[in-house]
Design a binder for these strands. Sequence first.
DNA 1: TAAACTTAGGGACATTTGTCCTTTATTTTA
DNA 2: TAAAATAAAGGACAAATGTCCCTAAGTTTA
Lengths: 202, 202
Amino acid sequence: MNTQSLPLVLFMDKLKQFLRQIVPISDEEFGKAIPYFEIKNLKKGEYFVHQNKICRQIAFINKGSLKTYYINHKSDEVTSCFCSGHCFVTSYKSFIKQVPSELAIQAMEDVELLVISREGLYKLYDISSIWQTIGRILAENEYLVMEKYASVLNNESAKEKYLRLMEEQPDILQKASVEDIASYLGVTRRTLSRIRKEISNM
Amino acid sequence: MNTQSLPLVLFMDKLKQFLRQIVPISDEEFGKAIPYFEIKNLKKGEYFVHQNKICRQIAFINKGSLKTYYINHKSDEVTSCFCSGHCFVTSYKSFIKQVPSELAIQAMEDVELLVISREGLYKLYDISSIWQTIGRILAENEYLVMEKYASVLNNESAKEKYLRLMEEQPDILQKASVEDIASYLGVTRRTLSRIRKEISNM
DNA sequence: TAAACTTAGGGACATTTGTCCTTTATTTTA
DNA sequence: TAAAATAAAGGACAAATGTCCCTAAGTTTA
């Protein structure tokens, strides 16, 4: 079946459910947004955002998982986030400041995204105050997510972070490489190997 | 001289300068905000935000320096930020969600703050679209500051962080205790002592 | 299918950091 | 001002982590 020929609305149900957890939105109000979204399919390894390119879109993950990473001053790839399940993904700093993205966002498996451009989103803000509210809450959420991330970096050991990953995103442990998981935890592969051994002995 | 009896406007000049770096604002527009601010003086050791209390204000630092800290799961105080110079301070998560603050914000020396309540700020949003813009940019800035913080946590060694502190906030090295600086760097006092020795031999 | 390549696990040793403790200098209090 | 309390520096050893390997298993390519 060629999914591209089906009406877009059929693919936007998860998004509607997701938004209704944030703010009550009628079918009518939601309907206004449909023309501004489009489907984007990525194969494993392809990029939603390239490093050093300006990020001009926000994506909602309909299916699949992605990782975000950057290159540090030792030229290592550092994984900063595993994105799976139904949520928004963007390189937020690049998106709001329209500067080149330090982050790359890459598909870890085939993914289906619902994508809206910055221009489209701003038009939605103009035509609908509920979308303005959604935009503000989205921004606040980005702050809260980042604060949580910083708190985890500050307070949890690599082992605790690994256990959290097992708990919250067990699928990622299958889909990501040892290198990616280790850099996400902030340790070397060798230490990750020790952590896994410790956990298997618990 | 009793500073309390002088007109508030005399104390708000630094704030005006600070805002004009963000957005052009006329004297008239700025004047509208004056009634919503008040001066708050804190002695060394006193708190602007208490842990577990809801934060209902934002402060602009007119004079002095503060630190933000929280208690981690090992019951250690962890310093997360040293605030000095002219900038805004608040426990942002608590402020936007109106939940008890994990952070405490404490004066490291006598400080003079310009304080606006959440209600006052929201009223300013209503009466002036430029203040709405300021509010949004403030929120985006909080995101960017937190992202920067996370990036430093992720990418810099304790020694690099110490050198950055020497560079960017040298006054803090005098005002904060060894414990505070060490927990800010994410190491023990012992390691900070080694870092200082290393740097003095450079 | 065999050879080449990639990936994960783990051994051996070096380096870094933490823990515990003592010494010294500085500040506070009686 | 002397005694007590607090704060910072650093020694000695233990624990954790990194570096540099090698091996084995799985995957890709000729």
